[in-house]
Design a protein around this nucleic acid. Sequence first.
DNA 1: CAGTATTCCTACCTGAATACTAGGATAATA
DNA 2: TATTATCCTAGTATTCAGGTAGGAATACTG
Lengths: 136, 136
Amino acid sequence: MPLFQVSTRIQYGLRALAYLASKEGPASAAEIAGAEGIPGKYLEGILGQLTASGLLRSERGKNGGYRLSLPAAELTVLSIVEALEGEIRPTECAAGPGACDHDLACLPRRFWLGLKTAVDEYLSSRTLLDVIDPAS
Amino acid sequence: MPLFQVSTRIQYGLRALAYLASKEGPASAAEIAGAEGIPGKYLEGILGQLTASGLLRSERGKNGGYRLSLPAAELTVLSIVEALEGEIRPTECAAGPGACDHDLACLPRRFWLGLKTAVDEYLSSRTLLDVIDPAS
DNA sequence: CAGTATTCCTACCTGAATACTAGGATAATA
DNA sequence: TATTATCCTAGTATTCAGGTAGGAATACTG
Ligand code: FES
Ligand code: FES
């Protein structure tokens, strides 16, 4: 029912990254899951997705685990969200012309695109560091 | 999959209100549905909800229909969204303490509340008039 | 008063998505 | 070779969006 809802997938992902950012060295999925109270197998999938998107680097085997592939200060929340849910798109017809029987100048569409811009600006102007730093 | 998705409910509602704003006198659900290409029975429910929320006034019977209960310039989009989908709440635990095992200072939660604030600001600073006026 | 146009109310249906769970294959280390 | 991890594929439960369907209540019109 919400206009925008932050899925558990994104919440878990962000918390896992926050955990990794405030720790030295790699952490396994099980470790993060235990520390954050997240279902382990579920988190595995999320971390795998973040790895595939290049936000994390993974190492298998003993003493393996995940680590950030970038400093927290260079990791925008927008990139995290897009890695987990793809591009943010407020409406179907925002994708391009032809998706809808209206024309390009459709005013409601413009309005929703403006909302997307506002959200994108918020998300791209904050980094993982901002999220874990109380001073923000 | 989207972080925020504008449901057809809201899109239809906004378009119906835009139609009413740019017209003299009342319009029936069937008329709006025909003009905007919206499923009639579905729109009925949406308009009923807007009426219950006080945004529309309705008259039954012949020559009845719906009309805005406020000038378009005084109707914020936020009020429309809240009428149709309730209060915007990014996460479950944003509702208050106790919804989650974290504490009030939980940083991710603060971050999401900041996003809600940004969205609320965008939506409450635009009125229905802004949506239908190309000059905006 | 009969007919017609309209809102209003309740119930139901369907496909898709979210939020998992389960079981194991693959790889790296010790 | 035993252990610890990631990686891969599949399945399931629940919820919700997006409708459909049918009719009851109400108001105007001739
Ligand atoms: S362009 Fe799709 S609703 Fe107007
Ligand atoms: S308060 Fe709910 S996730 Fe932190």
